[in-house]
Amino acid sequence: MEKSRRRWPDISSRPVARFGWRVWLLPMFLWPLAIDVVTEIIRGRPLRLVGGVLALYLAWKAAALLATRSAGANRRGAALVGVAAGLTAGLAAGMGPLISVALGFGAWAGTRLLTEDLPEEAPVVPPAPPPAPEVDPLAPQRVQLQRIADAAPALPHAAEMEGAVSALRDVLDELALRPARLPDARRHLNLQLDGLSRIVDRLEAGATPPETLPALLGEIAASARRLRAELNSAESEALDIQVKVLAERLRQEGP
């Protein structure tokens, strides 16, 4: 019982063929060509046979293409019929290039007139690419700082180290709010972070910290706090100027 159930291929994703009578009409024009193919086989004229077979094939393909109603099918189908007619005239009938081209053009125009108003599927518009994920310009600095913060508790002078890390993290947070100031602050920030990273690397390798290290760590923290204050004050100055300009304009243009 189970064996008798035949599995058919899934054709749901293929273009649906909707044969209208005008599309069905096209293969009806091909029967003399089919007779010609048989005639050429009997007479044994290979070039004419090739012309006839090619024309028959192209015209049949054109009808099948028109039947799919896919985007641009009407145009391409008509072109194929034109080529088929040209091949019939040129190769199978030996009518000369000029007449062949004229007949091909005529067949194209005839197919266009018959089928150009047939509805076809709208061309598939490719979906818009997804917006690029937002890249954090401070990501490398955050990674670097996190590595220092993770290593700091186990190192000598951990309190001073954590103070510097905290101050630098505040600078990163401040810069995240004002990305326009990033180019000005990046050099200073990288200098401090790179220096701190190297110190952590040496201490992790077992180096004995010099007496000046706590002072240096304090200086890094103080410098980071100054940088943050500068960023903040630059923003405040910009706002101050904006307020002054606006007040001046209001005074000049007011009633």
Binding site: L33, I35, A85, G110
Partner: peptide, 13 residues
């Protein structure tokens, strides 16, 4: 269209 197709496909055939 029918006339053109007839002429251009049947004549050479």
């Amino acid at each position: 269209g029918f006339g053109l197709l007839s002429l251009c496909l049947w004549l050479p055939a």
